[in-house]
């Protein structure tokens, strides 16, 4: 019986598979052209020397670009890569804490739609506008220093002092990216069944205990998503730094990997070193993402 009916079923399945792949073909082609090919080209360039003009001028150099990146005197590991990590960690920490606090507040307020919309406004504002407004706020004669002076405090050279430049930009990046995190976390908060809270209140649990024992554990999948996406955004950040500190200054205080890659490729015509740096950054992003997944999975977050 099974064999008698197996033929047509298998044939139908094969047809279904063929049709499925047929429908998938445009998407697969898109990925092949715009993802796989550039990726392979970047891997090739990472092992070549090329000014970016004629393909015939690509000169294979093996691993020389990678050794140059980490050679004595190279700025890539320190400060560029360390700045990138500090920038990403700082952004995630501030954005996550801020978003969690605000999302919890919004969840307990009236007119939640209004507050969510307001918190999302920085996302729909262009990075150039955000960067320039904050640049003015941070300026020696700007609003923040004016407020500090009004309180009898000395001015702070936020973007001019290498000690404060990176944290100052981190704050802006976190502020600008908090809207998405708030949206995701408020959605996560809404999905937590009310019954858990009622049971906890009946058992006499305080607000702190409820937040620590119920809200946080059940919010873990949303937190994981926010954490991973914010980290990747932070590691790839370029535009805001370019607007606020131009070339990653003062000195190298705010120079990050994406900015360095841009300058190497488009300014100095050194596509080999830029591609090698991109490859290293890709590995860093993969390692950090896998690390976060492992950490959350160990605590049951991925479920």
């Amino acid at each position: 019986m099974a064999s008698a009916g197996g033929g047509p079923v298998r044939a139908a399945r094969r047809r279904q598979t063929a049709v499925a792949y047929l429908f998938l073909t445009p998407a697969l082609l898109f990925f092949a052209v715009f993802l796989a090919l550039p990726l392979l080209f970047a891997v090739l360039l990472a092992q070549s020397r090329w000014a970016g003009f004629d393909l015939a001028d690509i000169e294979p150099v093996g691993m020389a670009n990678f050794t140059d990146l980490f050679a004595r005197g190279s700025t890539f590991l320190t400060p560029v890569l360390t700045n990138t990590l500090l920038y990403a960690v700082g952004t995630v920490a501030i954005a996550l804490l801020g978003a969690l606090t605000l999302a919890t507040c919004i969840n307990n307020l009236r007119f939640q739609g209004l507050w969510r919309t307001l918190s999302f406004l920085p996302i729909v504002t262009t990075v150039v506008a955000v960067g320039n407004v904050w640049k003015y706020l941070y300026a020696p004669g700007g609003l923040i220093n004016g407020a500090l002076n009004g309180l009898g405090l000395h001015s702070v050279a936020f973007l001019q002092d290498p000690g404060t430049a990176l944290p100052s930009v981190v704050v802006v990046q976190a502020w600008a990216s908090m809207g998405t995190a708030i949206l995701i976390l408020t959605a996560g908060l809404k999905s937590i069944p009310e019954a858990y809270y009622e049971a906890a209140e009946l058992d006499g649990a305080g607000a702190g205990t409820i937040f620590r024992r119920i809200t946080l554990p059940l919010l873990r999948p949303s937190l994981l998503f926010v954490c991973i996406t914010q980290f990747i955004t932070g590691l790839q950040s370029f535009a805001l730094i370019n607007v606020m500190t131009d070339d990653g200054g003062p000195g190298d205080a705010t120079n990050v990997a994406a900015l360095e890659m841009y300058q190497q490729a488009f300014k100095y015509g050194d596509w080999g070193i830029a591609s090698a740096a991109a490859f290293v950054l890709f590995l860093v992003i993969v390692a950090i993402t896998v690390g976060q997944l492992w950490l959350f999975r160990r605590k049951g977050g991925e479920s």
Partner: peptide, 21 residues
């Protein structure tokens, strides 16, 4: 590599100016 050399020199001069080095 004159532009790169100049950019690197600039960053180190700025490190002196800002007291970072």
């Amino acid at each position: 590599r004159a532009q790169q050399a100049k950019s690197l020199l600039r960053k180190n001069i700025e490190d002196v100016w800002t007291g970072r080095a």
